[in-house]
Simulated assay, not measured.
Amino acid sequence: MAGEILDNQGRGEASWQWPSIHPEGRKFGVAAAGIALVTIFLFDLELIGWPLLALAGGIFAFFRDPERVVPQDDNAIVAPADGLVTQIATVEPPAELVGDDGTGQVGLPAGSVTRISIFMSVFDVHINRTPIGGLVKRLVYMPGKFMSADLDKASEENERQHILIERTDGMLIGFTQIAGLVARRIIPFVKPGDIVATGQRVGLIRFGSRVDVYLPAGTASKVLLGQKAIAGETVLAELGQQTLIEGVAQ
């Protein structure tokens, strides 16, 4: 289905398929499966081998990389991560994304913006995607702690990676990959100077984490607190729209 155009009036074809496994995870899954099979069939230690085999299956599931249908709307900001919308707050954007980075490259303007935080559990897909298309202006890695990613201070204290994207019209969108309790490595797929399309894969975080998106001034969230987001598909916001949307948990 990759590259196929589908629309909201029935054009295209869609069917369920097994998601692929990202190469970053194959080595871990194969290693765990190999150890499990050796343990079971060579050493006859089934009490250890079968749990290891189950662990291999869990690793493959964690690194699954399904295809997504990305909305082709110039005003749409799409979710960069699968997971639960745990915070929608008015904050100052990270200093690493603001102003001049020392090379003459302009970053996000100073001032309060809306931040949407998406928490990824170990059961979610951990491939992250860009919320808009454009030029990768910055990629800033920050070492840090590994406290629970759903804490507000994780945005400033945990291991994290800031990404700044500039659209062709000059609009800048920043987002941050944040490691969590279990996560120990953030892996980028892009570098400054790369051109990316909306919803393109830009990196992953191993084993539980969070992604923050900083909306431009004058733009409000279209998702609700507690809503499930799907990377590359869920529209988080539309540029310039600030409509209040309410939901009921049921």
Results as ranks from 00 to 15, higher is better:
63 F>I: 10
63 F>N: 10
64 R>H: 05
64 R>F: 05
64 R>D: 04
64 R>N: 10
66 P>I: 05
66 P>T: 06
67 E>C: 07
69 V>L: 06
71 P>I: 05
71 P>T: 02
72 Q>K: 12
72 Q>A: 09
72 Q>R: 13
74 D>L: 14
74 D>R: 15
77 I>K: 04
77 I>Y: 01
79 A>V: 03
79 A>S: 10
82 D>Q: 02
84 L>A: 09
87 Q>G: 08
88 I>W: 14
89 A>I: 14
91 V>M: 12
91 V>L: 08
92 E>N: 10
93 P>W: 03
94 P>N: 11
96 E>P: 00
98 V>R: 04
98 V>P: 06
98 V>M: 04
99 G>I: 15
99 G>C: 12
100 D>V: 07
105 Q>A: 11
107 G>N: 00
107 G>P: 01
107 G>T: 03
108 L>F: 07
108 L>T: 11
108 L>A: 06
110 A>R: 11
112 S>E: 10
112 S>C: 06
113 V>G: 05
116 I>N: 04
117 S>P: 11
117 S>I: 12
117 S>A: 15
119 F>V: 14
122 V>T: 12
122 V>E: 08
123 F>T: 00
127 I>N: 08
128 N>T: 07
129 R>Y: 04
129 R>N: 03
131 P>S: 11
132 I>S: 02
133 G>F: 00
133 G>A: 02
133 G>C: 01
134 G>C: 07
136 V>Y: 02
137 K>Q: 10
137 K>H: 08
140 V>S: 00
140 V>D: 02
143 P>E: 11
145 K>Q: 05
146 F>D: 05
146 F>I: 04
147 M>Q: 06
147 M>G: 13
147 M>Y: 11
149 A>N: 15
151 L>I: 10
152 D>M: 12
153 K>P: 12
153 K>M: 13
154 A>S: 13
157 E>P: 05
158 N>C: 07
159 E>G: 08
159 E>S: 08
160 R>E: 01
161 Q>Y: 09
162 H>W: 13
163 I>C: 14
163 I>T: 15
165 I>R: 09
166 E>M: 05
166 E>Y: 02
166 E>I: 05
167 R>W: 12
173 I>C: 10
174 G>L: 12
174 G>D: 15
